[in-house]
């Protein structure tokens, strides 16, 4: 599973990254989190409001800072393990 955070490096993007780390730790999943700050790459995903969360190249959320339990729920619905 590859996880990417899209965002220009503002405080909201860092908050989403921290929440994602927490969610992954809670699930016991060891996955790399990549922080994409390049605007042309961000736009290539069709995202116009940052921060966004991308799991396996699919945009699962954008424009808001998710809470760790919301990320856990998202990961579970998209990827029943």
């Amino acid at each position: 599973m590859t996880i990417k955070i899209l965002g220009g490096g503002c405080s909201k993007c860092k908050a989403l990254e921290a929440a994602t780390k927490e969610a992954l730790a809670g699930l016991g999943v060891n996955a790399e989190i990549e922080h994409v700050t390049d605007f042309s790459q961000i736009a290539a995903y069709g995202v116009m409001s940052t921060p966004a969360l991308v799991v396996d190249e699919k945009v699962v959320s954008y424009g808001k800072v998710l809470k760790p339990d919301e990320i856990v729920a998202l990961l579970k619905t998209y990827y029943c393990t």
Binding site: C10, V47, T50
Partner: peptide
């Protein structure tokens, strides 16, 4: 439209593309 200055570039690109 909710919009903060840190989103202005993705927004610009989105509209233009």
């Amino acid at each position: 439209t909710p919009f903060c200055s840190c989103s202005s570039i993705p927004l610009f690109i989105g509209f233009t593309s």
